[in-house]
Design a protein around this nucleic acid. Structure first.
Length: 211
DNA sequence: ATATAGATGTACT
DNA sequence: GTACATCTATATT
């Protein structure tokens, strides 16, 4: 498991969002190491993106980290009970971030008893944070360092296609609600919400599930 | 299978 | 007060 470097995380946001689908999230806990492959994410590109917390250049205590250098964690609380993990992207001053929406569990996940439970365990931004124990304590954490970091897989994934389409739950965002800024692995069973992609890129043409 | 309602805390008109 | 980058339990096709 090779940790990513700050340089790896310094890419244009759209490219980084697609690159994330090649990486894993690692969290070291007292109970052991937990690993999940990123299979779904969404980019938020303030200040012109009405769906972004940083829309209009709004800089608050909550959004401050988005205005800093890339590769740090933006963690926020949603609906009073769930946390969401984002990777800050773009150069300082560009308040952009990528929301990690779903992971495929790799290795040991004792709380998942059946294959079905395993597929759904990390399917959703709130669920994966709960399962990984991610909360506001990780706000601003550099994502190339333990105990929470991004890494390259030990062995390359089988060939996969990247699907993209509109983001989830941003209908209030006007025109921005339709921008295809959600990315996922086509046909992957751990993706949070099934939807028809607006675009597909990658070697596969048949719609066969891939892990 | 899909459709609700309800939980909860922080950020913001 | 209202909205929210959500999820689960329960009810209803």
């Amino acid at each position: 498991m090779i940790p990513v470097t700050p340089t790896d995380l310094d890419q244009p946001t759209e490219r980084l969002a697609m690159a994330l689908l090649d990486w894993v999230v690692v969290k070291d806990t007292p109970e052991g190491r937990r690993v999940g492959r990123i299979v779904e994410c969404e980019m938020y590109q303030g200040p012109h993106d009405r769906a972004a917390h940083s829309y209009g250049g709004r800089r608050t205590e909550r959004t401050a980290v988005m205005f800093g250098p890339p590769g740090y964690a933006y963690v926020y609380l949603i609906y009073g009970m769930y946390h969401c993990l984002n990777v800050v992207s773009g150069p300082p001053g560009a308040p952009e971030a990528i929301l990690i929406r779903a992971l495929e569990p790799l290795g040991d996940w004792p709380e998942a008893q059946t294959p079905r439970q395993r597929d759904r365990l990390l399917a959703g931004p709130g669920k994966l944070c709960r399962a990984l124990g991610i909360d506001r304590r990780y706000y601003g954490h550099p994502l190339w360092q333990p105990p929470l970091w991004l890494a390259r897989p030990d062995t390359p994934w089988p060939s996969y296609q990247i699907a993209r389409g509109p983001r989830i739950h941003v209908d209030y965002a006007g025109e921005a609600a339709e921008w295809p800024w959600r990315f996922w692995i086509g046909g992957h069973p751990a993706v949070s919400v099934k939807s028809v992609p607006a675009f597909l890129t990658g070697p596969q043409t048949e719609s066969t599930p891939r892990r």
